[in-house]
Amino acid sequence: MVVPILKQGHYLIATIPTALTDADLQDLRDGLVAEVGLYRSRGVVVDITVLDVMDSFAVRTVRDIAHMTRLRGAETVIVGIQPEVAFSMVELGLTLEDVNTALDLEEGLALLDRKTKRAGKGGEIRGT
């Protein structure tokens, strides 16, 4: 299962469509890192609304995505964590504190705008 990665201006948006195997998640990670380099993207949104479980592996991989894309100059935000999933994650002690999180795609893009705003350049300024 290949997760489609959309390019929207200076951002990449990956919306996970269904439960992923470990291999799929790793492919997504590698794909995002590659495309960030290819397009010099400034921001990445990973939408995990559909995931009903975020276990230690998924969290590790998501963190990898955030770190590796940052090394290439992009800010990553994870959106769509479900309330039950958030609860479960913190029970496991996986708080993703070093990773940006937002409620949904709209909030995620707004966050990226704030973080990547540079005079004259940067992503579109979005109203709330």
Binding site: V79, I81, P83, A86, F87, M89, V90, E91, T95, L96, E97, T101, A102, L103, D104, E107, L111
Partner: peptide, 12 residues
């Protein structure tokens, strides 16, 4: 503490 962390995951 966990409530605080979990809320943050939802962007709050």
């Amino acid at each position: 503490v966990r409530t605080v962390d979990a809320s943050r995951l939802l962007g709050a």
